[in-house]
Design a protein around this nucleic acid. Structure first.
Lengths: 207, 207, 207, 207
DNA sequence: CATGAATGAGACTTCATTCAT
DNA sequence: AATGAATGAAGTCTCATTCAT
């Protein structure tokens, strides 16, 4: 077998390569329908090696999800606090380029994985809530509240407005890795939709 | 074993009972992690009886999905065509109570199932697109175009507006049967959100 | 369902129809690979009806074999005893037309069935030996011994000579219902071979 | 568990051990009535290991038959061509010791297996015909034709004479592994019968 | 008598996990 | 550390047999 990298370097990269392979496969086939051996093969190692790094298939799933979600959505709160412009500009700044990036990243895959597997692994629910839902809602909710207080937005129900902003963005990620991955389904131009959607909701929010 | 109904009557109900049990279980655990025998037990029959009605576990999945989606979303087009009021009123009429009902129905579960399983059963993609995406998009798109033509709505990109309306409603259904089913996750008041979301987007659409 | 015969008559014929269907199917697929229901269907009755006549699939097998072998090969001994011609003529008379008939009959199928199933149902061995091997060997052995005593045949080992006569005839029956039933295999003209074979062996026996 | 051999060595022997166990069991019980696990146990491995080497029970059957028949009967043709003695001597040389060996070998079991299973696996028919029937018939037919041409044999129908020679030898193999394996059945002294049979038929062939 | 829906033991096959090398 | 042969629990599906109608 050809190894293009020195084995020291490969060894250190193993856990990451396994996580990548696992994420890809779990999103593609679902956790239960994915074979541990295929994860290993995609990562370029043998079945046994997988078990050197992760004690079980389930532990691998949890590592995959933790790895991609921890600390990813809890940043930027401080940055938002000191933003100078309007609430609408801040939301645009936070959401458009931020979620275009998410949409293209592995985090989009992780959303699919969480939605798909959370009922079999309920501990994922609190983890996901703590690492994703909570920080994002706190941040966006604060900005919307600030906009309402400043007379920039209509006095809407903040929680619902946050959901109106966010649910389509999450759904877009899910779609990309479920129906959107199938030739027979309609495609969505994600980047353009994110822009259009944020614009539309902001128009609805403004006085 | 107690049999409260004559077997003739039971027999006719079997396929439906099996479909109901299968939908419930597949949504709960995912298709691959669900055991055929548990579907049978939930339907109150034995393993063998399941195979009397469906030749394989996969055929059962397909029957579940077909049963709930066929013809459900292709109705109401004619009704919309002759609607007299404003485009906004028509959209509200179509979406709010319509999707509150969907949200409470088995169709919501089927959305979860389709998103979860479509990559393992790609034929679901074209089926879902034909039975759900296509009719809904055609209908909503037409109403929005009518609103734009009448000067009631701003000239937005119609496809994106449809997605802004629909993706959160679908995501809401998915959420109900994934994270929303877990105690540890945040809950969403679906009915109120549907109302608030449609209102918000319509506000964003109006001139 | 159309019943072309009065049900009284059909009822009386049931056991025979079931035996015929079972023989055909067991020879075609083997006992273990044959389904009880298919026997019933071929006999034109339902699965349940089969069990009204035979208590189990194995009982059906035993009935099939008994029915076709009992008393079929133990006849003709007396007839042979009073035959006037040469031993060779007697053998020709007994074997040629007699085994051409066997070759065309259900008995040929039963040979296949016995050979195929005897190791799973050892009681078949003694039954077959008593009803077929013993009578045939006694009869043919006697004729050969008479021919040797009369100076018509060379003093060969009688048991081996009987086998030289009989084994190809039995093998011919087996072939008809195994390889011979497959298009891809070579065919044997059974009737002509029986004639030629008996002639050849009798030539070998004669002084 | 005691493992007397290094696993490398064991591994290489696995396929052969499985083939041997499968042949034995399939001949004993028939293919359909044999359980894959019992094949594995007889080969000293677990159920799963069987599937490491053969992808299905049916593939195992085909491997068993191929393994024992391929190239076994297509040899010796050249040897026969340059034989110097009489046709009768050549036939005796080819058949007597040759088939005594076959009779004692696994090939005898394979004959039983082919006859028993060919109607469920029709691809066996062409395989058997190509690997066994064709080479043997060509070879024996040539020798008989040579004997007739040399005036050593009577001008008999060659194909029938070949069958008169061969069918009893094949039947003898079948018998050994069906009725002959049952205590309740009559036994045949195979080696002596082969000798006697070839002598008898050659006597019948000679002018 | 006849039916065929229902059952559940049992067979094939898969695959997560272990462990000797 | 890495491998991959081996295991056996578990899952899908079949089918002989039963029994209510």
């Amino acid at each position: 077998m050809i190894k293009s990298l020195p084995s020291r370097r490969r060894k250190e990269a193993r856990p990451q390569e396994l996580l990548d392979a696992a994420l890809e496969l779990f999103v593609e086939k679902g956790f239960a329908a994915s074979r541990a051996e295929e994860v290993a093969v995609r990562a370029g190692v043998s079945k046994g090696t997988l078990y050197l790094y992760y004690p079980s298939k389930q532990a691998l799933l949890q590592a995959v999800i933790s790895h991609h979600l921890i600390d990813r959505f809890s940043v930027g709160v401080a940055q938002a606090a000191q933003f100078q412009g309007s609430a609408a500009d801040l939301l645009r700044s936070l959401l458009v380029s931020g979620w275009q990036e998410v949409y293209d990243s592995d985090a989009a895959k992780v959303f699919k994985l969480v939605i798909t597997e959370v009922r079999n692994f309920p501990e994922l629910a609190s983890f996901y809530h703590r690492e994703v839902v909570e920080p994002v809602h706190r941040q966006l909710g604060d900005v919307i509240r600030r906009g309402i207080a400043a007379g920039e937005f209509r006095p809407v129900a903040v929680e619902h407005a946050v959901h109106s902003l966010m649910l389509p963005l999450v759904m877009l990620c899910l779609h990309r890795h479920s129906l959107g991955a199938c030739a027979a389904a309609g495609q969505i131009d994600g980047h353009r939709f994110i822009q259009a959607h944020v614009d539309l909701v902001l128009a609805g929010l403004s006085v």
